[in-house]
């Protein structure tokens, strides 16, 4: 039993280290990028990888390596922001629904059901299409379904602890519903909902990159992996590196964050 836990713990640490490296790269991508990711150069169109241009150049002669680095910032930052906002909205809505119940709970939960009735990507494409392009539109499109999973989870955990004696004891101490939610319920449901947020990071990245790939997310010339792949796939036979490297970056990042989410979840479940 203890051995198994130690093993799971090791997995979590490895996953955290890799995720931290990715986040650090994204944060300092401006410094790390050897070339200006937006500078076009008509003499260096579709150059194969070399010492000066590690990942080669694209159709406009831009440094793919620098663009992948800057793109990391776009993808990772927007994912984190989106997950954080959905998490906040979800946990607040879920807690209110679970704690007070009644008609508000019914209405909000039916809305959540409605959102879950369609595949997330289908809703996102429809909403992003209506809102037009742009990163903001893509984030709203993904967030509109994402908060529901946090809300459901927060609600069910709230329901399971709201009848614990310590909640009743707090009420007998004269605490209001809001005070009880802040001091007793929030801290006790935070952990499972946070872990769920971790597991959502990978999917959200796929979502943002996917929308950008479809032209519904980040607009040119801003660097983002999905839009880079989309742009470069037109000349994939001439300059495969312009597709290969942003695609590899996407896959690696998603695998790392999914692995992190799974590792943490398994570690917690083992307790």
């Amino acid at each position: 039993m203890k051995k198994k836990k130690a093993k799971l713990r090791k997995r979590v640490i490895i996953a955290v280290v890799f995720a931290a490296i990715l986040v650090l790269i994204a944060t300092f991508s401006g410094v790390l990028a050897p070339n200006d990711p937006y500078a076009t150069n008509s003499e260096l169109i579709r150059q194969a990888p070399s010492a000066a241009y590690l990942f080669g150049t694209d159709n406009l002669g831009r440094c793919v390596f620098s663009r992948v680095l800057i793109g990391a910032r776009t993808t990772i930052a927007s994912t984190f922001f989106l997950v954080a906002v959905s998490f906040l909205i979800g946990i607040v809505v879920g807690m209110l629904c679970g704690f007070y119940g009644g008609i508000v709970d019914d209405i909000l939960m039916r809305i959540a059901d409605l959102m879950l009735a369609f595949p997330q990507m289908v809703v996102a494409i429809a909403v992003a299409g209506i809102l037009g392009g742009g990163l903001g539109g893509a984030m709203i499109a993904l967030g509109i379904t994402m908060w529901t999973s946090f809300a459901r989870l927060a609600r069910s955990h709230t329901l399971s602890i709201k009848n614990e004696p310590y909640i009743t004891a707090a009420r007998l101490q004269g605490k209001s519903g809001l005070q009880i939610m802040m001091t007793h319920i929030m801290p006790n449901i935070l952990e499972p909902v946070l872990i769920n947020a971790l597991t959502q990071i990978g999917t959200t990245m796929i979502g943002i990159s996917g929308l950008s790939f479809l032209g519904l997310g980040v607009v040119a010339p801003q660097a983002e992996w999905g839009s880079m792949i989309s742009e470069a796939r037109a000349y994939i036979q001439i300059a495969p590196w312009a597709v290969l490297f942003p695609a590899a970056a996407t896959v690696i990042t998603i695998v790392v964050f999914n692995y992190l989410g799974d590792a943490v979840m398994e570690y917690r479940n083992a307790e």
Binding site: Y166, T168, R171, S176
Partner: peptide, 21 residues
């Protein structure tokens, strides 16, 4: 209970559950 707590208090069967973990 927010009001009755001023003149009465409860002790529960589940002693551990009566305190925020």
């Amino acid at each position: 209970p927010e009001k009755t707590g001023k003149f009465l208090q409860m002790i529960f069967q589940d002693a551990y559950g009566s305190f925020d973990p």
